[in-house]
């Protein structure tokens, strides 16, 4: 590939950024700066989520990194209404808010923004209930695969073999398949995304918010201190998660599944799993057996998603 072709591809990419962003307010709803770690992908995700959602939005945040990085009273770096609540309560608080706004005839977006611990573990009951009741809200789980806020303890979302402070020898159980649990609620819209693909993420948020009823997004959020990689590699780690297929990106509208471009590409020619694992210190002592299990999980997941996308399952 010549330099000029490369350049034109970048210009196309740039224009795409502009096109996507033109549909949203150029405003930043997170003001300089939060106290998030340098290279935090969750901050990046939330920045784009809020740009996509616009100002008529209330954010509900349970205990997670996001509850502490806003700042200390009486100041906050978030220029959007944020309701911080207890760990297990986000989806239920959002239920109440959505009902109240509906009773007032208001169309304010209610977005719950919760970590993986608050979603796959302690908050899953409230989330399941809110989804089953058809609550008009968007629930976003930003998944850094551990309790990051409290110093990286294992969660149900931690992958097999990953070291955390409570799995010092590597986690001995596979990552909980949250998305299939969510899918069993037959939502009008659910999607997976990754912080390394902000344009894709923004489109999915906009689509979600254009639909009435319960919406869910599961966004992979690489965490430099937790996953033990250099902060500058946040995007590269996220991309590699998608390229290896360990993180699959798709949208499911009711029961109709559409694979996102990067995951389609990964299905055709996946990057070696080891390339992803080697980037991160948390996998430094992972066993060959664990890698084999993860590989099996990836293959199974992609096979099922592909079949679902093709309507052959």
């Amino acid at each position: 590939m010549t330099l000029s072709i490369k350049l034109s591809l970048f210009i196309i990419a740039y224009k795409r950024v502009q096109i996507v962003m033109s549909g949203t307010s150029a405003s930043e709803y997170i003001w300089k700066c939060t106290s998030a770690c340098a290279g935090c992908s969750s901050s990046l995700i939330l920045r784009h989520v809020l740009k996509a959602a616009g100002p008529d939005t209330v954010l509900v945040v349970p205990a997670c990194c996001t509850s502490v990085l806003q700042g200390v009273w009486p100041n906050t770096s978030f220029n959007i209404p944020v309701y911080n609540v207890a760990f297990a309560a986000a989806a239920a608080v959002a239920s109440g808010m959505a009902a109240a706004f509906e009773s007032m005839g208001r169309t304010t977006n209610v977005i719950a923004y919760a970590g993986d611990g608050g979603t796959v573990d302690i908050g899953i009951q409230a989330l399941s209930g809110a989804l089953e009741r058809g609550t008009n809200f968007l629930y976003i789980c930003y998944d850094n695969e551990a309790y990051g806020n409290t110093g990286m303890q294992r969660s149900g979302s931690t992958p097999l073999g990953a070291r955390t402070t409570t799995t010092p020898g590597g986690k001995t159980h596979v990552k909980k398949d949250l998305d299939r649990i969510i899918a069993a609620h037959h939502l009008p819209y659910m999607a997976t995304a990754c912080s390394a693909y902000p344009q894709d993420l923004v489109k999915k948020v906009q689509k979600a918010l254009s639909i009435k009823g319960p919406k869910f997004m599961h966004i992979l959020a690489p965490c430099p201190p937790g996953w033990r990689y250099d902060a500058s590699q946040t995007i590269e780690v996220g991309k590699m998660a998608v390229k290896t297929g360990i993180w699959a990106m798709y949208e499911r509208e009711y029961d109709s599944l559409t694979l996102s471009g990067p995951t389609k590409a990964a299905m055709i020619k996946p990057a070696p799993l080891e390339d992803y694992l080697k980037m991160q210190g948390r996998f430094s002592s992972i066993s060959e057996d664990a890698i084999r299990v993860i590989r099996g999980e990836i293959e199974r997941n992609l096979r099922l998603l592909k079949a679902e996308a093709e309507g052959t399952c």
Binding site: Q70, V72, W73, N75, S77, F78
Partner: peptide, 9 residues
Amino acid sequence: ISRPREGAC
């Protein structure tokens, strides 16, 4: 109740 401010952190 915290109010938005640049440099809050």
